[in-house]
Amino acid sequence: METAIAFWNILKKDIHNYYLKPPNISWGIIFPLSWTLMQLVRSPGNVEIIELLPGLMAMSILFGTTSMLAVTITFEKRSRSFDRLLLAPISISTLVFAKLSGAIIFGMVNAFVPVAFAANFADLSGTYWPLVIIAVFLIALTSALLGLLIAVSAKEVFEAQTFSNFFRFPMLFLCGLFLPIERLPGILKAISFCLPLTYGTDTLNGAIRGSSIFNTSFNIFIMLMFSALLFYLCHRNIQRNWIL
């Protein structure tokens, strides 16, 4: 019970202090909206909004989740308020799960902003929503873990932002959002198969547009494997870097 109280209050504090701040709310709305408009303007001919939706959802989660978690933890470490959490009689895992939960919720909410827009212009009746939710959760989970991995390594907020971009932009261009994976040159195609976002986007494509490269179960399995690997790396680095 004591652990549950601590977990809930860390989560509530993060949502209140960081995620519900006006700049983040506006980021969650403006970012997907501007990407949608950009795609519509630059695409030759008539591009269907439904074609853009999986990519926009994946991108909204990736950008929101990784940067928020990396920046907030680095910020708390810098101001030493993070020591307060490390000194609490709760396990590091509880602390990490509470931090991850905030980022995952933020990422999932961000993902449905483009859906809310798209619902006004496209027919989403063919969408298989349970799978969308699973895919959104798994993308948010892997992105949050990536953000955590960055947060564990970064000492300064600017470092966290730099590292985030280092991971995010290659993922963005190689996961099939802008260029179909089949059209990527050999080496880039190989890299794209090493990125969790590739499988998340593919699952979303399957659930929303009904076309995907891989089988859904395979995508989910790979995403879970990425999550386990990232969690292991985070846990190992936390033990090394947070308790010196």
Binding site: K13, S81, L85
Partner: peptide
């Protein structure tokens, strides 16, 4: 600690309640 490491955006009461919650109160 040697530095005042409370949360700047939270008020005094909220800060204390949050710290108490970390101990499961």
């Amino acid at each position: 600690p040697d530095e005042n490491n409370m949360y700047g955006e939270m008020d005094g009461f909220e800060n204390l309640c949050f710290c108490a919650a970390l101990y499961g109160m």
